[in-house]
Design a protein around this nucleic acid. Structure first.
Length: 568
RNA sequence: UGUCCUGUGGUGUAAUUGGCAACACGUCUGUCUCUGGAUCAGAAGAGUCUAGGUUCGAUUCCUAGCAGGACAACCA
């Protein structure tokens, strides 16, 4: 069944045939039936009232990805119908985040671009007897709407004449009334089983300047009235949104039918949820406002800018969006899947460096005093083209405190009294003496090295099980290291005991700031540069970092089999 | 006491539309290794919400239940 369709650089014959989810199925069916002459146009419609988070990333990847796959395009449209909540600050951050994720929109639109058209269509509805101006107060409207089990009551103003409605609506626009004095409502059915069809409000009066239209308008359309018509104006073929808008679809279709305009169609998918994470804008805002986190881009936030600062790559987030799939059932994704995607990406791309986070001084007693030498290290064993670098070695070095145990359990392959270990890219050393302070804390280790093992291999073929990382003391660079962990200690932060709220689940250990030493090649690292600190994890340079004070964020740890064994 | 959506391993998504449940993450073995990482090899884990029914055969169809979610802002 060749379709012989070609769109952009996409050969549809090759693409059609293996839909990966129900939306792709729908698109393919529409393509085959030539529903929109084979055209695919999606849109990503954020409200500029907050920062984008990983849940939006799923939607972005879905909307842009779907269009890309089938040779279509995607518009970015800001749903800016409520001037009391929206701001250009958010517009800019949203554009930055979408671009960072790797997508470019065909058109940048605003619902406010359509205010005039929307107004005219409202007049059309009034003239058709399908909308009326209601003088009831907000309270009265709420009370007469009924409940899910109880029909609402008709407004006393429901049967005004067309002329009267047109006149009042014009005067609403002209600014003759105060906020809340009047609204424009659709005339549908106050007894409808779907609450949204009970004469929904189309326009309300808000005497507030809009970030784009200024003071031109004092009436603003509601979401339901603006969104579908905006889709229609742009001739969106597939309007994809989350499940909670499912109940809005009858209204979406009602406007299109009554106005006889381009029939965009809405499809709903299940929004993303993740373990140990809250995703609602309200809660994220609360975290910021109550200074529980440092800001929207706090590296512990699930915001795009937070993930970016933490060190996640766009590639890893796209891979994640791809792996979580698209369906209609509620879901909670393991945070470990995001980490997997990150590691998979960075393992191939991030250069390796050595950094000691929790330093323990080691003196190599048989190494000549005052001498240093340069050793060669591989930048990335997964990628030969990453090349090599040299690192200084000397008589005094730091190793990780956890890499030494005075009384090691069996299977501890690291350093211990009398035990030999390999210093990565350097030498074998053996521990001879443990120095302690008066309190009994280990302050220093005295070791000897075997000069014949330079580079890490022994000419006599003797094996050492363990390899540990290190930083030479004199040339090592001090660095602040921020150990980030999940923001919540409960899988489901909302699942807390009666009488307490989700903030009880906040992980008080989610940020630990320590000072460590990194190898000198890191001194020139720039914000957002990413590295694997060998055996410790992936780290990214923070915005706060400067040549005089390096700051790294731990994006995620490496898998740690030993920690698992030791923990048992 | 309503309407709509959804129920498949621990998690998420599949199953050529009726052909005897697959993939990924996670978990557990083992291999290899100058990262206890990566790699490689393998294993366990669901009989598809329940009960009936149709059929040679049901995750797919029918009926009745049950469970979870959404909806009662002049928010989006």
């Amino acid at each position: 069944m060749a379709t012989n369709l070609e769109k952009g650089n996409v050969n549809l014959d090759e693409v059609i045939g293996s839909p990966r989810n129900f939306l792709e199925e729908i698109v393919e069916a529409d393509l085959k039936s030539q529903k929109h002459s084979g055209r695919v146009l999606t849109r990503f419609p954020p409200e500029p009232n907050g920062y984008l988070h990983i849940g939006h990333a799923k939607s972005i990847c879905l909307n842009f990805g779907l269009a890309q796959k089938y040779g279509g395009k995607t518009n970015l449209r800001f749903d800016d119908t409520n001037p009391t909540k929206e701001d250009v600050e958010y517009v800019d951050s949203i554009k930055e985040d979408v671009r960072w994720l790797g997508f470019e929109w065909a058109n940048e639109f605003y619902a406010s671009d359509y205010f005039e058209q929307l107004y005219e269509w409202a007049i059309v509805l009034i003239q058709k007897g399908l909308a009326y101006v209601d003088d009831q107060s907000q309270e009265e409207i709420r009370l007469t709407r009924g409940t899910v089990n109880l029909a609402g009551k008709d407004s006393p103003w429901r049967n005004r004449t067309v002329e009267e409605n047109v006149d009042f609506f014009r005067r609403m626009r002209a600014g003759e009334f105060k906020d809340g004095d009047k609204v424009l409502r659709a005339k549908i059915d106050m007894g409808h089983s779907n609450m949204l069809m009970r004469d929904p409000i189309l326009y309300r009066i808000i005497h507030t300047a809009h970030h784009r239209t200024g003071n031109k308008w004092c009436i603003y359309p509601m979401y339901d009235y603006a969104h579908g018509q905006s889709d229609s104006l742009e001739q969106i073929t597939h309007s994809i949104c989350t499940l909670e808008f499912d109940v809005h679809r009858p209204l979406y279709d009602w406007f299109i039918e009554k106005l006889e305009i381009f029939p965009s169609h809405q499809y709903e998918f299940a929004r993303l949820n993740m373990t140990y994470t809250v995703m609602s804008k309200r809660k994220l805002l609360q975290l910021v406002q109550e200074k529980i986190v440092l800001g929207w881009d706090d590296p512990r936030m699930p915001t795009i800018c937070g993930l970016r600062r933490r060190g996640y790559t766009p590639e890893s987030i796209r891979a994640f969006a791809d792996k979580v799939g698209v369906a209609k059932r509620d879901n909670v994704i393991d945070l470990s899947l995001l980490d997997f995607c990150l590691r998979e990406d960075l393992n191939k791309r991030a250069e390796r460096r050595m950094a000691v986070l929790n330093p323990l001084k080691v003196v190599i007693t048989n190494y000549p005093e005052g001498q240093t030498e340069q050793l060669e290290a591989v930048n990335n064993p997964e990628d030969e083209t990453a090349g090599k670098r040299s690192i200084p070695f000397g008589r005094e070095i730091y190793i990780e405190t956890e890499d030494f145990m005075e009384n090691p359990p069996k299977k501890f392959f690291r350093l211990a009294p009398g035990q030999e270990v390999r210093l990565r890219y350097a030498y074998f050393i053996r521990c001879n003496e443990v120095i302690k302070d008066s309190a009994g804390n280990i302050t220093e280790l005295r070791c000897t090295y075997d000069p014949a093992t330079k580079g890490g291999n022994s000419p006599d073929g003797r094996k050492v099980q363990g390899t540990i990382h290190w930083v030479e003391k004199k040339n090592g660079v001090k660095a602040e290291i921020r150990l980030l962990d999940r923001l919540f200690s409960k899988e489901n932060p909302d699942d807390v005991p009666e009488g307490t709220d989700w903030k009880e689940a906040i992980n008080k250990e989610s940020l630990k700031v320590i000072e460590g030493f990194v190898e000198p090649s890191l001194a020139s690292a720039k914000p957002l540069d990413k590295f694997q600190f060998e055996r410790m994890g992936y780290f990214s340079v923070d915005y706060d970092s400067s040549p005089s004070k390096l700051v790294f964020n731990r994006t995620t740890t490496l898998k740690d089999t030993w920690a698992k064994i030791a923990g048992q």
